[in-house]
Nucleic acid binder design. Structure first.
Length: 258
DNA sequence: TGCATGACCCCTC
DNA sequence: GGAGGGGCCATGC
């Protein structure tokens, strides 16, 4: 039937209207592909911030697989984004931008606390899982903190590769420990020294000029003159020797080896 | 509700 | 010093 010849169709057509502004943003989550230190990554983000990151390689470059993975977890469909949110691209390249916002809605309080604590670990430094659990306010939930990081929705943006085992070993990583090692070496973490110290039972370094004891990768520890550097098995041992925990890296005062 | 599951930790042997 | 096992705790089913 020709347009205009059916009064009912005309009336229905008159009812059609563009969707209200912002409706699409309420229904869809935006996604884009971007370069990163793990190669190309797919990134999903809402108006509240970045929500989900996965390397294209782990999805065989299949954006449909990314969309399915995202929908399984967050229950929303994706649509392509026109541009990246502020701070995303430099942060993915290893230059953290303070303007980058993360969308942590939908996560449990514990998950948010673990991810927020992990985000505070500076590039080039590592912290043990026990440190993350303590900073998250649940000092005994070490294993649970590891479980949260195993499901980290935003690798690289939440630098879970900087969380390592208390005995000096790297521990596991969601994309394999080889990737974890590469990321840390790229950040100039001296993994060989950390392992060598751990073999000697040294998990903390103190300076006898400042009286401060740190994690070995803390930037304050790396500035200690070798002549004034002392290794400790535990913070307790360092405190007994007259040292105080570093206020920057905050090693646990009651820890035995973590 | 209860049970199984882990990117852990630490003690013991 | 390396392996094994028990403890731990948030989460998913």
């Amino acid at each position: 039937m020709l347009n205009g010849a059916d009064p009912i169709a005309d009336a229905l057509g008159a009812l059609a209207a563009p969707p209200p502004t912002g409706l699409a943003d309420k229904v869809f989550t935006a996604w884009l592909a971007a370069p990163s230190r793990l190669g190309e990554v797919f990134v999903a983000f809402t108006g509240h911030g970045v929500q989900f990151v996965r390397p294209a390689e782990t999805l065989h470059g299949d954006i449909d697989a990314f969309a399915e993975s995202y929908r399984d977890r967050f229950g929303r469909p994706l649509r392509p984004a026109a541009r990246a949110p502020s701070g995303l691209l430099p942060t993915l390249r290893g230059r953290p931008a303070t303007s980058l916002r993360l969308d942590l809605r939908g996560l449990s309080e514990f998950e948010r606390d673990v991810l927020t604590a992990t985000r505070r670990i500076p590039a080039g430094e590592t912290r043990p899982y026990g440190w993350v659990a303590r900073e998250a306010g649940r000092p005994r939930a070490v294993r649970a903190a590891g479980s949260v990081l195993a499901r980290n929705p935003m690798p690289l943006l939440v630098p879970c590769h900087r969380v390592v085992r208390a005995d000096g070993r790297l521990g596991d990583y969601m994309f394999g420990s080889a990737h974890k090692e590469k990321l840390l070496r790229d950040e100039r973490v001296d993994l060989d020294e950390v392992v060598a110290l751990a073999r000697q039972g040294v998990h903390y370094l103190g300076s006898d000029t400042t009286g401060v004891v740190c994690f070995p990768t803390c930037h304050n520890a790396r500035r200690i003159d070798p002549a004034h550097r002392h290794g400790f098995r535990s913070v307790g041992a360092a405190v007994a020797a007259g040292y105080r925990p570093c206020r920057t890296c905050r090693p646990a005062a009651d820890a035995t080896s973590a």
